[in-house]
Amino acid sequence: MTVGEPEDDNERHLSVEIPPELDGKRLDVACAQLFDQYSRSRLQAWIEAGRLCVDGIVTTRPRLPVAAGQRLVLDAEPEPDSTVQAQPIALTIVYADRDLVVIDKPAGLTVHPGAGQRDGTLQNALLHHFPQTAALPRAGIVHRLDKDTSGLMVVALTLKAHARLVAALQARAVHREYDALVQGELIAGGRIEAPIGRHPRDRLRMAVVDHGGREAVTHYRIEERFRQFTRLRVRLETGRTHQIRVHLAHLRHPIVGDPVYGRAVRGSGLAAPLREALHAFRRQALHARALEFIHPGHGKPMRWDAEPPADMQALYALLRAHAAFV
């Protein structure tokens, strides 16, 4: 196990064993990797406050070397994040129980506050609809979608569910499928394996890079063929920032409407209504349509599906009509 998981008797207490690769590392360094749902500064503060045991003994020394096989138990007392305020923002809730909630996020909704947006985010909405998420890292958000990507997201409602979902994501045991409309006519599906890192010249973009990138693997198959365009079903094996958008642009089939990695639609030979609709589509035509994982509470496999939103459905209808006309 690579992520601290709550012990059954007390959800506050996270327990994990030091793996061989962390043998000899400083305690705070090991904790930063094993309890990575929390910031390093928070973990250091908890260690210094005596809220961490190593093999049953409390230690307040962040620099203490650890050994493989030692058991760490962290008293991760929930601490509400007062910097993000609850806001009554409407959400489409697909499923909810005591452990988690699955949301169909609309395009245009930012997942969590950042330098460019302090409120009006999914995190603000979660704090309103599910007040218990105030005690969880990032209000229970364990993965994200880009602002203008629509679709399914899972959010943890308890510390135990949060730890187990983070672990499942790291183990690539959360299966995510996307609907993508791309430029060009692909003839077959395939697999893209190309490392992704920061663009060497534009630090606001990601790119396929030769050196220093992180492993990234994307699978795709043809869902529907149109004239000059293709609808794809895309499955993530890894989850890097902008991964699908970067990989499809690298394949020279960028996602329609992508303002960062796409290109202008030329519109040669397209019917006027379709050409106008494509030019007016101001977001990437990308939708997270399926989500599947083992439930962190009862342990049964769960799957949810959500059809693409109205704006993408309208494009598909116009493309079908154009193909039938020509």
Rank of each mutant, 00 (worst) to 15 (best):
G4D: 07
E5K: 08
P6W: 07
D9I: 04
D23N: 12
A30L: 00
Q33Y: 05
D36Y: 00
Q37Y: 15
Y38M: 04
Y38I: 04
R40C: 09
Q44L: 03
C53K: 15
V58L: 11
R63M: 05
D75I: 15
P78V: 02
T83H: 12
Q87E: 11
V94E: 04
V94W: 02
V101M: 04
I103Y: 02
I103G: 00
I103N: 02
D104T: 10
P106E: 08
V111E: 06
V111K: 07
Q117F: 01
R118E: 07
T121D: 07
L122F: 03
A125T: 01
L126F: 06
L126I: 03
F130N: 05
T133S: 11
R138S: 07
G140F: 09
L145E: 12
V155D: 13
T158Q: 10
L159W: 00
A161D: 11
L165S: 10
L165F: 08
V166Q: 00
Q170Y: 10
Q170C: 09
A171I: 03
Y178C: 11
R203E: 15
L204Q: 11
R205Y: 11
A207P: 07
V208I: 04
V208C: 04
V209P: 14
V209K: 13
R214P: 03
R221S: 15
F226H: 13
F226T: 10
R227S: 15
Q228D: 14
R231E: 01
R231D: 01
V234G: 01
R235N: 00
Q243G: 05
Q243I: 02
R245P: 06
H247C: 14
L251Q: 00
V260F: 11
G269C: 13
L274D: 09
R275Q: 04
R282V: 06
A290P: 06
P296K: 00
G297R: 05
G297N: 06
K300T: 03
P301C: 08
P301H: 06
D305N: 06
Q313K: 04
A314M: 05
L319C: 09
A321P: 02
H322W: 01
F325Q: 13
